[in-house]
């Protein structure tokens, strides 16, 4: 989207949040995610604690330590949700309780993480907390100053990536320019489109729409779809520059 023309904002809905047993007057009201009707867009349950975590990292007054800790908690919820989309096989095991079995499942297929540098690297810790020895590839995409289009500078990915499910990591999905290019890179290495899961904390309605138009089979897992983009292509209300707040600010 060219700069200078902000898209019309979608007003995010407000909702009273809390468990069912609690009377309505005891449930505080908060703004929850907009819910574009898009297949393969998966928005985390808007629980009060998720909203509280997002409130923390959106707050301009939150320092770096708290920003890192709380964004990591959200990333972990995203990873747990994304892993649920991987295929499993039925698998019944004996339990430590004599004579009892558990009808469980076994994970099938190998995975790897790919982070879009540098902000995507901020989500690697959460991925490692759920999958200890996971391989993590990197892709560096920067905006070209002259054309103002994203350009691939560097990639280093596992050799056998085409046989793996890929968790693509980038915390903010604004226009989606870099992420779309990253998916192109993965596809050029032979990764099937439907084996890619794109994880982000906050997305814009334009971003998720662009993804649905270009790669309808890529699953987008996000914590929140915001109201839109401003004239500088920042997500609003957003949280500012994720990479800066996590690494250097």
């Amino acid at each position: 989207m060219p700069e200078g023309r902000p898209s019309p904002l979608i007003r995010a809905p407000s909702q009273q949040l809390g468990p069912d047993y609690r009377p309505t007057e005891e449930k505080p009201t908060a703004t929850v995610s907009t819910a574009p009707k898009i297949n393969n867009l998966h928005i985390l349950n808007q629980t009060p604690q998720l909203i509280a975590l997002l409130t923390m990292i959106r707050d301009i007054n939150t320092g770096r330590a708290d920003f890192i800790f709380h964004s990591n908690r959200i990333s972990r919820l995203l990873v747990e949700e994304a892993l649920n989309h991987l295929p499993v096989l039925p698998h019944t095991v004996n339990t430590p309780v004599a004579g009892r079995t558990y009808a469980g499942v076994k994970f099938e297929g190998k995975i790897c993480g790919v982070s879009i540098m540098r902000a995507g690297e901020a989500m690697e810790q959460a991925l490692r907390e759920c999958c200890r020895s996971v391989r993590i590839g990197k892709i560096l995409i920067q905006r070209d100053e002259e054309t103002s289009k994203p350009r691939l500078f560097y990639d280093k990915l596992p050799e056998d990536i085409k046989d793996r499910w890929v968790l693509l990591l980038d915390p903010m999905l604004a226009t989606g320019g870099s992420a779309l290019m990253a998916v192109d890179v993965l596809r050029s290495k032979g990764v099937p489109e439907d084996h890619i899961l794109f994880l982000n904390l906050i997305a814009s309605p334009e971003g998720v729409q662009n993804f649905a138009d270009k790669f309808p089979k890529v699953r987008v897992v996000t914590a929140f779809v915001d109201e839109g983009l401003n004239d500088k292509n920042y997500i609003v209300p957003g949280l500012g520059d994720f990479g800066d707040r996590f690494f250097t600010l």
């Binding site: 009201t29 908060a30 409130t55 959106r58 609003v236 209300p237």
Partner: peptide, 15 residues
Amino acid sequence: VNTPVPGCTYDGLEL
């Protein structure tokens, strides 16, 4: 809260 994006606020929750 105010977000770092100028002029933007977010109606959230806290513990």
